[in-house]
Amino acid sequence: MTTLVTAENVSKRYGSVRAVDNVSFSIEQGKILGLFGPNGAGKTTLLKAVLGLTDCEGALSVLGFDPFRQRKELLRNICFIADVAVLPRWIRVEQLLDFVTATHPNFSRSRVEALLGRTKIRRNAKVRELSKGMVAQLHLSIIMAVDAKLLVLDEPTLGLDIIFRKDFYADLLSDYFDEERTILITTHQVEEIENILTDIMFIHNGRILLDSPMESLGEQYAELMTAGEAADTARGLRPLYEREVFGKSVMTFENVDRGRLANLGEIRVPSVADLFVAKVKGATS
């Protein structure tokens, strides 16, 4: 399997603050990686380093390029949506397509025309005349028409309604993703995308708390719902995090024998959102 992104001891400081603190990870081709973290955790800084928008310490290689120093070469094979609102509002759709066609060697005009053909977006409309959902559709259509190896989405559906968000990810999977392509997504709406992820990464205070394939989560983590004396016994097994639900204790465990937990209550694989909270709160406490 081809490794697209390799980061070794990557750090980024803003003054005395370490936004990204000595992180190492790799991203393989054909994966959909969800990068999650609380506000200010360092997600966007890390993405910007991957996209060559900011310099960093350590060794970072994306598609074999130094992203900051070889950004132009990199951006021929990588594309990103930083936010749905970033398309210039003064431009007409036709002009936007003309511009990307002229400047991006891997952009397919016929593909974007086909994708936009499914929408109500008029070619002579200005971006400012489109609804927020249409702007996101336009941006996504442009991105999906680029034959890129790596797609980076930073909060791509921020401010959009649930129907559009569902459609957005459905289109991404059906019209874009294949084993040749890799997607890196950050969003706070964890529940909406966990079903499409192959890998997840949690970042907190600039450090990576978790970097794992989705399929391994069930082996590594367990969530136990219990009460009474069993709860006290379970606490002895050092849960990552504990919360109360309807008078019962729900505890998240890492690398604890599932057989032992099964005797103490009801166990299940934690959702990504619950695991995220457990890891972040556990790390904070």
């Binding site: 928008l53 132009k72 951006l75 970033v86 210039p88 509002r89 991006h104």
Partner: peptide
Amino acid sequence: DKSILFWRSLPI
């Protein structure tokens, strides 16, 4: 208008 992030997403 923050469109700089879009312009900088292109290989220019």
